[in-house]
Design a protein around this nucleic acid. Sequence first.
DNA 1: CTGAAAGCGCTTACAG
DNA 2: CTGAAAGCGCTTACAG
Lengths: 336, 336
Amino acid sequence: MASKSAPRATYAEIAKTAGVSEATVSRVLNGDENVHPDRTKAVNAAVKKLGYKKHRAASALASGRTGLIAVVIDDDLSIFADPFWATVTSGISRVLMENELQTLLMVTPLESVDGPVAHYLMGGEVDGAIFFQLHKDALIKRLRKQNLPIVITGTPHSRSDFPFVDTDSFGGAHAATKHLFSRGCRQVGIITGDIDTTAGAARLDGYNQAYRESGHVPSKKLIASGDWSMESGRAAMARLLEKAEGIDGVFASNDLMAVGAMAAIEEAGLRVPEDIKIIGFDDSVVAQTARPALTSVRQDIVALGEAAAELMIAQLRGEEVQPRILKSELVIRETT
Amino acid sequence: MASKSAPRATYAEIAKTAGVSEATVSRVLNGDENVHPDRTKAVNAAVKKLGYKKHRAASALASGRTGLIAVVIDDDLSIFADPFWATVTSGISRVLMENELQTLLMVTPLESVDGPVAHYLMGGEVDGAIFFQLHKDALIKRLRKQNLPIVITGTPHSRSDFPFVDTDSFGGAHAATKHLFSRGCRQVGIITGDIDTTAGAARLDGYNQAYRESGHVPSKKLIASGDWSMESGRAAMARLLEKAEGIDGVFASNDLMAVGAMAAIEEAGLRVPEDIKIIGFDDSVVAQTARPALTSVRQDIVALGEAAAELMIAQLRGEEVQPRILKSELVIRETT
DNA sequence: CTGAAAGCGCTTACAG
DNA sequence: CTGAAAGCGCTTACAG
């Protein structure tokens, strides 16, 4: 049932063909500096000759290090539509692999701090865990208390000392809003995402800041709230059209809501970008397929994953780590 | 550096508190039937009391079973835009977890049969591997020769005996084409995907079959080839508009090409669905955000992942497995 | 800089 | 149905 693989080499054989002890083999394979160059060479040669690959389980049992990093993804429905985590994870996986670490993927509901995932993570089965933006910090706090290296993708709520990586939502929203003004808009509205998320709040802040820098104060009427869904964007836009007379630009906090807003604008008999200019956030495939094609704030999602992996590796090395905020970039298409 | 986790319980402690030998503990924990119920009960109680979790590395070293299933994803660019593999993988992960197996994610270029991934998989580091539609079978053949359980997501080229799971592309294309006829279309075209892929070929076959059933033979002029990209769909549609006079329906082999086709139709001054009806395949987010919203063939992608995991588990149990083809479903929206 | 030896926490013939 | 014992393939004080 299990693989009847070719008989694999062990330390014993390497030690014999290199003429050293198994302890020395171990030292060389673990990068111990204090080994005579000649022996190092001999061991490396034997390793190559025998096509040796270290047995992970044996190594893990003896050393306590598993070589496995968990990537924990909250299993709510949004992941089924959203390529975001997949892309981040591919960046994570690549960097981990380069560092001889493997990615253990756990897609699971996180409701319970005492769920199977929690047990697993606390049981020393992995060397570290990377989480996607979570709402409850309880689990993470517990894991940290046990000295399990943690990285969070997305900004955590409680600005505790969790290492995290995120895209600069504030900066992206700020740039988007400024761009609308520079294109001649006078009344720029915003469709917010869920304001209880840090990303939702930061994008609103960026909008407000840019508005103030333009010398005006955004009227409450220009702010409509959505929940990241296309439908909420459509409804929010309909409200803006009704309340905010003269509105001629809209920053939607993600692409899906932007596309919903475009539908509402069209339904009202207005045109994009002639009557109302619009910008989304994420530069997802939806932005590219929209007609007119949607101007959007691009996050470098692969880089986000790579940064997360790098923070993890730094912690594994015992280094102090700082949060990492990645720049976003405005991709200008036809809606502005 | 490694987690300084709470001292975990071991067999020794369980054996002591349950009043049995470690061998018996092992038997109970591995579901051995031949243990006296009383002892079984005692062991289970001790496990619960001590909050015991089996140490995976130790178990793997002793038994040769790692409890890890690799999910291998070819790292070409398409994955960055396509939520498909992410969704499949979430289905896989869920089912594996329920069966006490973990998902080891490997995102990597597969170019070399002798790459690090190959070594890893052949080194007995995992109990099985699930692949996403691959072009070269060499690696997989080698792994099978070593009795490594394999599942392929997507139909393999060489109809060898690899266990695979796939959505019924033929049936979906067939239903889509029939639906266009039933909506009154007379000249139904197809925009194919990459015809060298099994999915691309099967969708074309389904179209041809439905066409013939309608009592006609599809003219060559009604067939335009794309490469799954939006841009290729746009170009293919432009060609159809030029060559296939009177075309009034199009089945595009995926949503992205359908959206491209819609753009081309609009650019030609025609309307969807009044002048030309159109159907996509995948029912992706793009189908939902398109205007008019795109009728599309839905695959149950999560179910695909679950089926893949189930085939893997069956193999692990030593059962014979058959390929699994999942039904697709037409989701009717505004373009037909 | 190096080796002999103990040990990591399970599993599994083997003998009963 | 059960236990004593050997062993899985590494790592790591310890002593030199």
